[in-house]
Nucleic acid binder design. Structure first.
Length: 666
RNA sequence: GCCGACUUGGCGCAAUUGGCAGCGCACCGUACUUGUAAUACGGGGGUUAGGGGUUCAAGUCCCCUAGUCGGCUCCA
C-alpha cells in the first residue's frame, strides 16, 4: 500500500493512496472539497501532492452545491411524474435554484405541491450522487432522449454555453448517476459538471418550490419557451423560514401595496398601463421632493429649461432615436397632408411623436445662439416628462412605467472641463441622494466592448472619456464595479447603485458621456483661439425618474417617511373633545411655520384615532388632555409606539420644526 | 411581446358538484366624549373587469378583449 502526501485544510498529512474526501472530512457540514482550487465531490480521490480543503454547506460554494443538488432532485421528481418531460438546464441562483423543462402542459401551482412530495421521497431515500466521466459520443447516445442536453454537449467549451455552464464545462464531460443505496441501482441520471452533495438526504427539509414560469431556451427570445420551476434551498428549516420572512418583509414594503394603503398614487385602468396618477398625499411628497431638488440644482449652477411633450419626427430622426428606438416609442400622431382640387399639396403632412427623451430639446436650446467657451460649462435642468412604449410584460408599479418625469440635466462642457465637471456632478448626485436618506452606494463603470461596431465615436475620445470616468469614480472612494460592454452605443457611463434599508440594490443615477449627439447636431463653441470646437455632452438623471425614485423611497422607508417628506407630518388627538381648542392653538403655531398638521376632531375614540394615524404612518401624533393643558404641555406618540409625555409646547414645536429642517427620521 | 395564474361593493376576502351574491374594514346616521393600536347600534353600497357563448339556471364552464401578478426577453 503506497502512501501519498496531501495538504488538508492547511496541514500536511500522509494518506493511503486512493483516499477520498469522505475519510478526511467527517464533519457532516462538509459537503464537498476544494482540491487544488477546484470544487470536487467528497468522493474525489486525492493524488500525491494535492492541496484540499473542506467546503461547508453554509459557505457560498456549499450553498450553490446544495441548491444545484436540489435542482437535480426537482428534475428527477418531474420526470418521475411525467417521463415525457425533457430536461433543460438547472443551475443554482441567488437563494435558490431553478430547472427548465420542455413539457406539453405548463406546471400549475398545484403541481408544485405534488412535486415537493415526490422530492421528499427522493430525499428520504438518500440516493447517492455518483460522478461518471463520459465523452461526447457516448453521452450523445446515452442522452438521445434529451435533445437539450445534446445541444449543450455540442456547445461544450464554447462561450455560447452561457447559462448551461452548470451542465457542461471546458473540461471533461460527466454524468451524475443517482444511485438507490438499498439496491445499488441507478434510478436517474443527468448531464452535469458537479460537484454534488454526497447524497440527496443532505438536502433535508430546508427547501421549497416557489413558482413556475416560462423561460426562453438559452435565454434567447427566438428560441422555444421552456417551463421553469423555481425553488429555494437552505441548510436548515430555520434558515428557510428566515428567508421566507425576508420575502414577507419585502412584500410589506412593496410600494404598489403601500401606495394604495397610504393613498399616494394609483394606476387607473381607464388611463392605460404604466400611467400613474398621484393622489393629494403622493402629490405633496412629489412636490416636496421636486422643490428640494430644484433648490439644490439652482445652488449648484444649473439653469432651468422647459420643453414640450411632443415634437415633429425630424427631431428624433436627427437625434437617431427613431432609427434606434422606434419600437420603444409610442406610435406617431399623424397629421395628414392637405391637397387642393388640383392635387397640389396645400399643407404638408407631419408625424408628431411623444418624446422618449429630453436631450434633443436641450440641444436645440444650446444651438439657439452661438456659444463661446465662456458659456461653458452650460448646465440645463428640466423635470421632463417622457413617454416610452415599454412592453406590457415589463411594466411594474412605479419602477417601470410608460409615462415618467425625469429629473434630467444635460451639461455641455469643453474637453478640458470634463474631469472637473464630472467630479462635481458625481459629488452633487451623491450628496442629494444622501439628503433623501440613501447613504449606501457603489458605482458601476460601463465601458464599451472592444471590436463591437455598434459603439460610435472616435476610439481616442472613448479612451480618454473612460479614463476620466474611471478617475472620477475612483476619487469618490466608493466601491467601483466594472461593467464591460455595458456602455450605451454613444458613450461610457457611471451609474450609482444604492442599497436600501433591507439591503436590496437599486440603480439610481446615471452619468453618461455622449459623443454621438454633439456630432449629429453639429454642436460647436468658439474656443479662446477663435476656432470652432465640439463640446462634450453629459447626460445626467439623478433620480432616474421621479416616479421610480418615489417607489424606491417608499420601499426604503417602508412607508415610514421622515417628517420632511411625510404627507401629513403631525396629527393632533385630543384626549377628549374639551381639549380640542387647546390642540388647535398648538396646531396653528405649527401651521404658521409651514408644518402639515391636522387635528382629528372625529367622534372616534381616542385609541381608535391613535391606531388610525399610526397605520397611516404619521411621524408625530400629538396628544393633549387635562394634565397637558394645565402644564402648558403636549404629549408625543411616535410610529414605533413609544411616547414622551408632558413636553412644554415651545419645546414640542421647536422639536418638530428641527426634525423637518434637518431631514432626520423619527 | 411570450408563458402561466388571477380580476367578486372604495379596500381585503367568502360563496359545496353550475342553484337566493355574503363577511370584515372603510363610508353614512344616531348615541357616547374616554390618557396612548379597533365604543355600540343602525343604514346605504355590487349587471361578479368588459364583451360574446353553452345551459332551465353561470361569480362558477368555453371564447375574445382589457388590466393585474409572477417569470422570460427588453430597459436609450
Amino acid at each position: 500500500m503506497s502512501v501519498i502526501k496531501v495538504t488538508v485544510d492547511g496541514a500536511s498529512r500522509e494518506l493511503e493512496s486512493g483516499s477520498d474526501g469522505f475519510g478526511l472530512f467527517t464533519d457532516k457540514t462538509i459537503v464537498a472539497q476544494r482540491v487544488n482550487g477546484e470544487l470536487r465531490d467528497l468522493a474525489h480521490k486525492l493524488q500525491d501532492g494535492d492541496v484540499t480543503e473542506g467546503v461547508a454547506i453554509s459557505s457560498p460554494d456549499g450553498l450553490n452545491i446544495l441548491r444545484h443538488s436540489a435542482a437535480h432532485v426537482l428534475a428527477q421528481a418531474v420526470q418521475s411524474i411525467n417521463p415525457e418531460a425533457k430536461l433543460g438546464i438547472g443551475p443554482p441562483i441567488t437563494d435558490g435554484f431553478y430547472y427548465d423543462f420542455d413539457v406539453e402542459t405548463p406546471f400549475a401551482p398545484e403541481d408544485l405541491k405534488a412535486l415537493e412530495k415526490a422530492m421528499d421521497r427522493i430525499i428520504r431515500q438518500g440516493q447517492r450522487f455518483i460522478r461518471r466521466v463520459t465523452n461526447d459520443g457516448d453521452a450523445t447516445v446515452e442522452l438521445s432522449n434529451e435533445p437539450y442536453k445534446i445541444e449543450l454537449i455540442g456547445l461544450k467549451g464554447s462561450d455560447a454555453v452561457g447559462e448551461g455552464s452548470a451542465e457542461v464545462g471546458a473540461g471533461e464531460l460527466t454524468i451524475y448517476d443517482n444511485v438507490d443505496p438499498q439496491t445499488g441501482n441507478v434510478v436517474w441520471k443527468d448531464l452535469c459538471r458537479g460537484p454534488h452533495l454526497p447524497n440527496t438526504r443532505m438536502i433535508g427539509n430546508g427547501y421549497a418550490l416557489t413558482r413556475s414560469a416560462a423561460a426562453y431556451w438559452r435565454g434567447n427570445e427566438n428560441n422555444k419557451q421552456l417551463q421553469r420551476i423555481y425553488g429555494t434551498a437552505w441548510p436548515t428549516k430555520d434558515e428557510l423560514r428566515a428567508h421566507q420572512e425576508r420575502l414577507e418583509e419585502a412584500a410589506r414594503r412593496d410600494h404598489r401595496r403601500l401606495g394604495a394603503e397610504l393613498d399616494l398614487f394609483s394606476f387607473p385602468e381607464e388611463i392605460g398601463s404604466g400611467l400613474a396618477v398621484f393622489h393629494p398625499k403622493g402629490g405633496i411628497m412629489r412636490r416636496v421632493m421636486e422643490d428640494y431638488s430644484r433648490k439644490r440644482h439652482e445652488e449648484s449652477g444649473y439653469e432651468f429649461v422647459y420643453s414640450p411633450h411632443i415634437t415633429k419626427s425630424n427631431l428624433f430622426e436627427q437625434s437617431g432615436h427613431l432609427a434606434w428606438y422606434a419600437d420603444g416609442m409610442f406610435p406617431p400622431m399623424v397629421m395628414d397632408e392637405e391637397v387642393d382640387e388640383n392635387g397640389v399639396v396645400r399643407k404638408q403632412g407631419q408625424n408628431y411623436y411623444l418624446k422618449p427623451m429630453n436631450c434633443p430639446f436641450h440641444i436645440l436650446i444650446f444651438k439657439s445662439q452661438a456659444r463661446s467657451y465662456r458659456d461653458l460649462p452650460l448646465r440645463m435642468f428640466e423635470f421632463g416628462s417622457v413617454y416610452r412604449y415599454e412592453k406590457s410584460g415589463v411594466l411594474h408599479g412605479l419602477t417601470r412605467v410608460r409615462g415618467m418625469t425625469q429629473d434630467d440635466a444635460h451639461l455641455f462642457v469643453t474637453p478640458d472641463n470634463m474631469e472637473e465637471e464630472l467630479t462635481k456632478v458625481l459629488g452633487f448626485v451623491l450628496g442629494l441622494l444622501r439628503d433623501y436618506g440613501l447613504d449606501d452606494f457603489y458605482l458601476e463603470l460601463s465601458t464599451k466592448e472592444e471590436g463591437n461596431p455598434k459603439f460610435v465615436g472616435d476610439p481616442a475620445i472613448w479612451e480618454t472619456a473612460t479614463a476620466t470616468l474611471q478617475k472620477v469614480a475612483t476619487a469618490s472612494g466608493l466601491e467601483l464595479v466594472p461593467d464591460p460592454g455595458g456602455a450605451a452605443f454613444y458613450g461610457p457611463k457611471i451609474s450609482v447603485q444604492a442599497r436600501d434599508a433591507i439591503g436590496r440594490t437599486w440603480q439610481m443615477s446615471t452619468i453618461q458621456l455622449d459623443f454621438n449627439l454633439p456630432e449629429r447636431f453639429d454642436l460647436e463653441y468658439t474656443a479662446p483661439d477663435g476656432t470652432k470646437q465640439r463640446p462634450v455632452m453629459i447626460h445626467r438623471a439623478l433620480f432616474g425618474s421621479i416616479e421610480r425614485f418615489f417607489g424606491v423611497l417608499t420601499e426604503h422607508y417602508a412607508g415610514h417617511f421622515p417628517p420632511w417628506l411625510a404627507p401629513v407630518q403631525v396629527v393632533g388627538v385630543p384626549i377628549a373633545e374639551a381639549f380640542s381648542p387647546y390642540l388647535h392653538s398648538i396646531a396653528d403655531r405649527l401651521k404658521a411655520a409651514g408644518v402639515r398638521v391636522t387635528i382629528d376632531d372625529s367622534d372616534d375614540r381616542m385609541q381608535k384615532k391613535i391606531r388610525n394615524h399610526t397605520m397611516a404612518k404619521v411621524p408625530f401624533i400629538l396628544l393633549a388632555g387635562g394634565e397637558d393643558e394645565a402644564a402648558g404641555a403636549v404629549s408625543f406618540r411616535f410610529r414605533d409606539g413609544h411616547q414622551e409625555n408632558g413636553i412644554p409646547v415651545d419645546d414640542a414645536v421647536a422639536r418638530i420644526l428641527k426634525a423637518i429642517e434637518d431631514k432626520v427620521q423619527v
